[in-house]
């Protein structure tokens, strides 16, 4: 039974990683038609350097991701502090309101943003995408930082106050240092959410201003070359690295650690 189970799990992992491996391999294959046999080249990555459109899209993606990270982390962390440390009426409702951005299909949210932003004159473009990405990232930040706050016991702040700290000093001297890993994790997560976001960006992009995923989508639909594989591989690597650091900080992989 155990051997069978192991075999099955490895088959599942093979299914999950095979196409991704193919994608990356083809980025290093000389044939523009994805033909075998495999012939190693870095030609497609070199091509990238001269592709102004993709470079501009990459710059936009990174810029949006940085802005999203800063804004979502600060705004989300403030809300997380209130939601997990202060008792007030409507707290349950506010917690529930974090779910729609996570649970409603992005297609619906993206089209709704398009309608509203167009209607109110906010328009499309970089600022609109930042507006949208931050909204998608805030709930995740609140969840990650909130979990961190719940692990930081309230009696530590009380202890600091009994020793003469004002609530503000207690927060900065005791809670904030202990919260740092969660804050960094939340920031990384926000960055990854923004960098990988396609649907929202797709509806809010303009012909002149788009992001890397939108540009990749356009390329795929218009007919593509291994250049797309090359840039996709880079995007894949970036998000994997972010998530690996995130997991280290929050010990997500350690869910199974006990026993």
């Amino acid at each position: 039974m155990t051997a069978l189970g192991k075999l099955f799990l490895f088959a599942v992992l093979g299914f999950l990683y095979l196409p991704v491996a193919v994608l990356v391999a083809m980025a290093f294959n000389a044939s523009p038609l994805y033909a075998l046999p495999f012939e190693f080249t870095t030609h497609w990555f070199e091509e990238l350097a001269g592709n102004d459109k993709l470079l501009a899209a990459t710059r936009n993606s990174v810029l949006i991701a940085i802005l999203t990270t800063v804004l979502a982390t600060v705004i989300g962390a403030l809300a997380a502090i209130a939601l997990s440390r202060r008792r007030f009426r409507g707290r349950t409702l506010l917690r529930l309101l974090l779910l729609p951005p996570i649970a409603i299909p992005w297609l619906i949210i993206g089209t709704a943003m398009l309608v509203f932003f167009f209607w109110t004159g906010i328009g499309r473009g970089l600022h609109a995408m930042v507006l949208g990405h931050v909204a998608l990232a805030i709930p995740y930040v609140v969840l990650v930082v909130g979990a961190g706050l719940n692990n930081t016991r309230i009696d530590l702040e009380e202890a600091a106050m009994s020793l003469g700290s004002t609530p503000l000093h207690a927060f900065f001297a005791v809670t904030l240092p202990l919260l740092m890993p969660s804050l960094i994790a939340a920031a990384l997560f926000a960055f990854a959410v923004s960098l990988d976001q396609f649907v929202i960006s797709y509806f809010l992009a303009t012909p002149g201003v788009s992001t890397l995923p939108v540009e990749i989508y356009t390329s795929i639909r218009k007919g593509f070359t291994p250049e797309v594989n090359a840039v996709s591989s880079l995007l894949l690597a970036a998000s994997m690295i972010l998530i690996i650091i995130f997991a280290r900080l929050t010990k997500v992989g350690g869910v199974s650690g006990r026993r």
Binding site: L16, V20, D196, V228, L236, S239
Partner: peptide, 29 residues
């Protein structure tokens, strides 16, 4: 059931890792 300890942690992480990578790129592949 078939794995224990550190191995299981790593495998668990490998299973969920693709989920947080770009969906578009994975479909494209």
């Amino acid at each position: 059931r078939a794995f224990r300890g550190r191995t299981r942690e790593v495998l668990f992480f490998l299973v969920i890792l693709p989920f947080w990578t770009n969906g578009l790129v994975r479909v494209f592949s």
